[in-house]
Write a protein that binds this DNA or RNA. Sequence first.
DNA 1: CGAACAGTTGATCAGGATCAACTCGAGTGG
DNA 2: CCACTCGAGTTGATCCTGATCAACTGTTCG
Lengths: 239, 239
Amino acid sequence: MLSPFFALLERYAPLSTAERNALGELASQPKRYAAGADLVIEGERSKDCRLLVSGQAFRHKTLPDGRRQIMSFHVPGEILDIQSLFLSMDHGVCALTPCEVALITHAKLLTVFEKHPKIALAFWRLNMVEAAVFRAWMIGMGRRSAYARVAHMFCEVVMRLKAAGLMPGDRASFPITQQHLSDALGLSAVHTNRVLQQLRGQGLIAFNYGELTVMDWSGLQAAGEFEPSYLHLPPLDPA
Amino acid sequence: MLSPFFALLERYAPLSTAERNALGELASQPKRYAAGADLVIEGERSKDCRLLVSGQAFRHKTLPDGRRQIMSFHVPGEILDIQSLFLSMDHGVCALTPCEVALITHAKLLTVFEKHPKIALAFWRLNMVEAAVFRAWMIGMGRRSAYARVAHMFCEVVMRLKAAGLMPGDRASFPITQQHLSDALGLSAVHTNRVLQQLRGQGLIAFNYGELTVMDWSGLQAAGEFEPSYLHLPPLDPA
DNA sequence: CGAACAGTTGATCAGGATCAACTCGAGTGG
DNA sequence: CCACTCGAGTTGATCCTGATCAACTGTTCG
């Protein structure tokens, strides 16, 4: 159950067995949520962090009048609200698929950090990578055309699904609607639809009802001006 | 020299004298840079972090063809490249004014973290606040009109300048050009200019050649749909 | 069978980009 | 002292990307 979580932490430096053991005892039995459920609620001041054990989720902030900005997508092994450790949650996280979520109480986690400072640094590092991804999205929304933005998004998603082992070949389940995609990119749903048709027409990707197929990876990267170093992933390029 | 730095760290929890002492020995003599100088260079893998001792700076990523996205503005006391501790720098930092920058070697910093885990957590927390600000900018660029975006930016700047003690009354030096502002907001310089005229015309702010004056704080907040909780600042509202 | 949601299409509109010219200092050098 | 340049800001005209509105298709599910 925790292996994706360990894999993430060990991307940078291996854990000692003592560290693994300490971590292993942290997480509660996972709880199940339906697709669409709120996994983390904006404004809540919780006493534990939530580890996504299985399923996919997205981080978003919804404004009073309904405008929504999606800020990241999440795969198993990621902690959804590490921010709650120190700060109130200024946004929410919502399930895309049925999800399992385990709790890790802040108190226990902080104790582990005290005993194993390396672990704290590993968590912090993961958090830094997330921030790097936020910045990359900012560049897209500020300075890229809708076309490049959509292509860039898919490039990132492919890299991350591959890294998580969720995209063995050139096809994966990525169950978002065009509306989700629009809210992630700051576009209208209609325009997103048209850009998707372009990408399809040029034989770069197919994306329908949550099924993503990459048909021309290097073409897609070119369309998205994609340069993957910001993801800080180990150099294991998807084929 | 380090007092703004200590003030930032202590925003959340006070430091013990032992911790203060450990931190006090970290930073090198500051080095001076001219306005416009690159303080942190994209792609560089450095052996130390840079602490902004005096002056103002901004974080940016510039694309091959010259398009630029500014991702944050910085005031004294902030570390400009804490990311370099674990990751390569995927963006640069540039001086807005003449700046003084002190170095903190990674090795020493990590030693302090090991001895004083609380300090590591305090740094991490600052890092989290930065990420929260990135997300807020994403919302602006994705889902707000140019008008609200500009107003929101000024609201944030005011809060942060106030928190840093750089805006005693309703006026401060914030030496960016309209081009900088445009690159921070994802707008063209021409359009930024027109929005600024609107804000001026409505008596909300004056902003000319790096001098910012707030004339109607609550009006400005309304125009920017500003809701300051994401800054995670102590509740000391500017008058 | 009907409801509800995702996707698609066409028509129209507008926010903001782009291009180009001009003003206004603040240096700078002859 | 003046001509020149250079950067920042301003203005007007035009264009275009992407938003909005509305209708329609197709699929899934109760």
